[in-house]
């Protein structure tokens, strides 16, 4: 049996669900992305999930009584493995089992997942837009109405699918922030800052710039046009005013708050 579910890997919610499946006679055999594979079992299993580093994962044996390793899930960001073990030993069905639970790790995974889903949404919306523009151009604006209607519906639904997934994970990440009290890399509005005639890269170590928020260089051209993303709580006017005093009156500063999409690299 296969089931698709978006969980934070290694979280309590996921573990509870896996144990519910085990209680119904479905034992986990594999995890791939959001897809969980199960096989029927008539034995009573209790499932455990733990985070391990890649080095430790290589040392964990497939079976070490009373546990057997059921599945692993390797995550790229953060680079860890989640190992899923199970036991049929009666003594272990109720006993307290110390597992390496880690809310900070869950938070890191949640923010990475949210970023992934938003990036996917951006990719779908951008590529969908490019395709429809290209198709309109090639057909010399003679696309059948049924085609454009179907295309637009599917395109927007696909984008909305990733947005919904990101929103769901965002709420989980919010809960984890409250539990961990860790707000250091919390989401802040991303403002897009453009400079014209800027002679060189901004010194992002400058205390005045640093105090504004988190900076990221997006790109620049040979003519001195620079694009930075700034994650900040400052208003657009505040940003512009502060930056103008840093770069001088010769540099033109434009600040855009919203480009119509979730910011790329949203984390």
């Amino acid at each position: 049996m296969r089931r698709w579910h978006t969980f934070i890997k290694g979280s309590e919610q996921e573990l509870t669900w896996l144990n519910q499946q085990a209680a119904r006679g479905w034992l986990l055999t594999g995890v791939r992305g959001s897809c969980y594979q199960f096989k029927a079992t008539d034995q009573k299993y209790r499932i455990f999930s733990e985070y391990v580093t890649l080095a430790v994962a290589a040392e964990v044996p497939a079976a070490s009584a009373p546990f057997e390793q059921l599945a692993t899930a390797e995550l790229a960001n953060p680079a860890i493995k989640v190992i899923y073990t199970g036991s049929t030993q009666p003594a272990l069905q109720q006993v307290q089992v110390r597992r390496h639970g880690d809310l900070m790790m869950e938070l890191n995974i949640a923010t990475a997942m949210r970023g992934h889903f938003l990036n996917m949404m951006n990719v779908v919306l951008f590529s969908g837009l490019l395709l429809i523009v290209a198709a309109t151009f090639v057909s010399q604006d003679n696309l059948p109405e049924w085609f454009t209607d179907t295309y637009l519906t599917l395109w927007l639904m696909w984008g909305a699918y990733f947005l919904l997934k990101a929103t769901k994970i965002h709420h989980v990440a919010d809960d984890l922030r409250v539990k961990t009290q860790y707000y250091d890399d919390a989401w802040l509005p991303t403002q897009h800052v453009f400079f014209e005639h800027l002679p060189a890269d901004l010194n992002l170590e400058d205390p005045q710039l640093k105090s504004m928020g988190r900076w990221q260089l997006v790109g620049h051209d040979q003519k001195g046009t620079y694009w930075y993303d700034l994650q900040t709580l400052s208003s657009l006017d505040e940003i512009k005013q502060t930056l103008q005093s840093v770069v001088g009156p010769d540099v033109k500063v434009n600040v855009l708050s919203f480009l119509g999409l979730g910011p790329i690299g949203y984390l």
Partner: peptide, 14 residues
């Protein structure tokens, strides 16, 4: 009364 998960055990051993 108490047991360690395999991951926890091997993380500590490592």
């Amino acid at each position: 009364k108490l047991q360690l998960g395999l991951g926890t055990l091997f993380t500590n051993l490592h």
